[in-house]
């Protein structure tokens, strides 16, 4: 070890350096095997979606299809209705995200920057519901939707999805708006801006970073939602979202593995692409829970 001391740092192939490097590469191989395990089901899924229906069963562990069979996608898209399911999911997700962003930004803004009667009550109720499990309230949600005539419709699904929880988003906006210097508002008011234009022209554009986080997390939660879309579409198969459609598909065609895999690829591709493009924001959005 002592021989390595007088060597210039960063140069050379001293024993310690090589050993150090080697240790980390061994670690990398171990972690790499784990990482492969994490990605494998998706690779298998893509591979199965390109095999013909017999090859899925016969080819054992081979991941490469002999010839890619694109008809699986056509079958999933048209026959199994995943084109329709994708459209439903896109409609529901886009509407829910817009509704959640607008309503949470508006609520967060007034709670953070104005004093008014009832402010405290609103705050207390919001915070209190953070500690009540919302996943166990599905029965009243269905009951109220039915009474309002919103069951079995996409708009009803959107309203229910954007009404549930999202306290975190309101709190995020509140925290952000509280930190904005009030001179900005005052300047806008002097320039003749009313309440609405102060919010939509000055405050909301300022809150872009929060809007990005809320959009991304709401998008993910809504795209992946299952329980609500499931109970909202029991009697309307044409309104199913991707996740519900998938369950129905395997319920009816349990032997069509390649069709199932193609449908799964169609359903997961949009979120995976978005994740790869915006990875940093996903990770930061989620890590927020610990950085307190």
């Amino acid at each position: 070890m002592s021989t390595t001391v007088h060597k210039a740092p960063g140069r050379g192939w001293s024993v310690a350096r090589v050993r150090n490097r080697l240790v980390w590469w061994v670690m990398a191989v171990i972690i790499g095997i784990g990482a492969l395990l994490w990605v494998y089901p998706f690779v298998w899924m893509v591979s199965a979606s390109l095999k013909d229906q017999l090859e899925v069963f016969g080819s054992g562990l081979s991941l490469l299809p002999k010839t890619p069979v694109w008809e699986n996608y056509a079958r999933a898209w048209t026959d199994a209705g995943f084109g329709q399911y994708l459209l439903n999911t896109v409609i529901v997700t886009v509407c829910t995200v817009v509704l959640v962003v607008v309503r949470c930004a508006m609520a967060g803004y007034v709670i953070a920057r104005y004093r008014f009667t009832g402010r405290k009550t609103v705050m207390v109720v919001l915070i209190a519901t953070l500690f009540v499990p919302t996943g166990y309230t599905i029965i009243p949600v269905v009951e109220i939707s039915q009474r309002l005539g919103l069951l079995n419709s996409l708009s009803g699904m959107v309203i229910a999805l954007s009404g549930a929880a999202h306290v975190a988003s309101i709190l995020l906006y509140m925290g952000y708006f509280r930190g904005v210097p009030k001179e900005l508002e005052e300047a806008a008011v002097i320039d003749g801006a009313g309440f609405l234009s102060v919010f939509f022209r000055v405050m909301l554009p300022l809150a872009m970073p929060v809007t990005a986080t809320v959009t991304l997390l709401t998008f993910l939660a809504t795209w992946n939602a299952f329980f609500l879309p499931l109970v909202f579409t029991f009697s309307r198969p044409d309104l199913r979202t991707l996740s519900v459609g998938m369950l129905a598909f395997v319920g009816e065609n349990s032997v069509d593995w390649s069709g199932m895999a193609a449908a799964a690829v169609i359903s997961l591709l949009p979120v995976v692409i978005l994740f790869v493009l915006l990875q940093r924001y996903f990770v930061e959005g989620m890590a927020g829970a610990v950085k307190s």
């Binding site: 919302t134 999202h166 927020g288 307190s292």
Partner: peptide, 8 residues
Amino acid sequence: LPRLKARR
């Protein structure tokens, strides 16, 4: 998720 994030 939203519930988790709000914990802080």
